[in-house]
């Protein structure tokens, strides 16, 4: 008698459990299908440049001339690849020390100002749309560089500076989390040996949190690498490798956004853009792997 009672009570729970399982399963299935179709779509389009149109892979990766309408058309994407890497890495070089020092201020020096003032400001910075960053870059940074340096003001310098502002919140936030999660005993241990605050930060806090700091920097680079609009607005968009930081050039993303409206679906010009997208996607995978590897190293 008691047993059947138990079963009556248990049945609705089982149904609930079943519905929950099916629902979450459908969601994850949807996610997986989306990701795989994206990868498949980009890859099939991107690879057809080589398979269908017969463009040499080596020519695309190392060629210096991008003339899709030329006779014969040339698809050398090296200037774009160079532009993407140089702007994002330079942006990280500018933003990383700033982000780390801001995090040190927020966690070590003045947690109160950090929590009540800096944190919201950084969140705000992260929420500004990229077109606004680009617009400010175009109206402030480009004219400034034009006055200060030879050239039109556009180029890698302007691009990396705008990107540096854009990735600063990412780097600062992750650096702040890393500093805050440092075991309290480590700092005390260092202070108790008569180390100063600066020595403690430089010798204990920084090295111990380095893998996490690196994660933030790589995430920042990944974001800079994928950013299109803001960069396109300040980089000049000339398809060649520049001789200086203040000369017009292009990135993978800016090349795609600039030309995508002007090519016919299925044409070699269109497929070549997909090849650029494929390179972007593969680089993102590389960044994700680097981040995962760094995360693994964090748990010493």
């Amino acid at each position: 008698m008691k047993k059947s009672n138990d079963r009556e009570v248990a049945t609705p729970h089982l149904a609930e459990e079943w519905v929950g399982k099916v629902y979450t399963f459908i969601c994850i299935l949807f996610l997986i299908i989306t990701i795989f179709s994206m990868v498949y779509f980009v890859a099939s389009k991107g690879l057809s440049t080589f398979i269908v149109n017969g463009v040499n892979v080596k020519d695309l990766l190392t060629g210096l001339k991008w003339k899709p309408d030329g006779e014969p058309p040339m698809f050398g994407a090296l200037p774009f690849i160079f532009g993407s890497f140089s702007t994002s890495i330079l942006a990280a070089i500018i933003a990383a020390p700033l982000g780390f020092c801001a995090a040190v201020f927020m966690v070590e020096l003045s947690p109160k100002i950090g929590r009540t003032f800096m944190q919201p400001v950084i969140e705000l910075l992260a929420g500004i749309p990229s077109v606004v960053y680009g617009f400010v870059g175009l109206s402030v940074i480009v004219p400034l560089f034009r006055d200060l340096f030879p050239g039109q003001g556009v180029g890698i310098a302007a691009g990396s500076l705008v990107l540096a502002f854009m990735i600063l919140p990412t780097i600062t936030t992750i650096a702040t989390d890393a500093l805050a999660s440092l075991p309290a005993g480590l700092k005390e241990g260092s202070y108790a040996l008569g180390a100063t605050r600066w020595q403690t930060i430089y010798r204990i806090v920084l090295p111990t949190t380095l893998p996490a700091q690196m994660t933030g920097i790589v995430l920042g680079i990944a974001r800079a690498f994928g950013e299109a609009l803001a960069v396109q607005m300040v980089i000049g968009n000339a398809p060649h490798i520049p001789n200086s930081l203040f000369e017009s050039t292009s990135t993978l993303t800016s090349a795609i956004t600039l030309s995508m409206g002007n090519t016919a679906m299925g044409s070699v010009q269109n497929n070549a853009l997909w090849s650029l997208a494929l390179i972007l996607m593969l680089m993102t995978f590389v960044f994700v792997f680097i981040i995962r590897w760094l995360e693994g190293r964090k748990k010493l």
Binding site: P183, G185, L186, E188, G189, S190, Y191, A192, L193, G194, A195, T196, I204, P207, T208, L300
Partner: peptide, 20 residues
């Protein structure tokens, strides 16, 4: 305080070796 802590050392409940 820095010089003082050199003269008075401290050991905690949880061992806190540096990650070195």
């Amino acid at each position: 305080v820095v010089a003082l802590r050199k003269n008075i050392g401290m050991v905690w409940q949880r061992p806190n070796p540096f990650h070195k």
